[in-house]
């Protein structure tokens, strides 16, 4: 009996931290990296919602998507798509950059309360 309670408790803790799988409802946004430049350089997303960011690296070399504001870091392999989940975020501007070519590969994610699709 005690074992059962312990298992239930562990499962409850697990559920508390493991993300609810609501990918169908998660809105998708797209970024493209070409010639070490992210387009669009300004991406608007809704506030307080988790979103899926799909980045397509069209360059021949790898790049690393990095953002101290978003706390995200991901290697973008050449000619491949990579996915990152961000949010829920408060309204504001969140900068990101390509770690290998930070002078050209830069952009900002604008989180808006009154986001219009």
């Amino acid at each position: 009996m005690t074992k059962l309670i312990r298992l239930r408790f562990m499962f409850a803790i697990f559920c508390l931290f493991v993300s609810h799988n609501s990918q169908a409802q998660t809105k998708e946004f797209y970024l493209t990296l070409e010639n070490h430049v992210f387009t669009p350089s300004e991406l608007k997303i809704p506030a307080n919602k988790k979103v899926k960011l799909i980045i397509f690296n069209k360059d021949k070399v790898a790049e690393e998507f990095d953002s101290f504001d978003l706390n995200r870091e991901k290697v973008l392999f050449p000619k491949r798509k990579s996915t990152i989940f961000i949010g829920p975020l408060k309204p504001g501007n969140y900068e990101y950059f390509g770690e290998y070519y930070p002078n050209s590969a830069r952009g900002v994610i604008i989180v808006e309360v009154n986001y219009v699709n």
């Binding site: 508390l16 931290f17 493991v18 993300s19 988790k50 899926k52 995200r72 990152i84 989940f85």
Partner: peptide
């Protein structure tokens, strides 16, 4: 969190 396994 980046790949949505843990709640953010």
């Amino acid at each position: 969190q980046q790949v949505d396994i843990i709640k953010s």
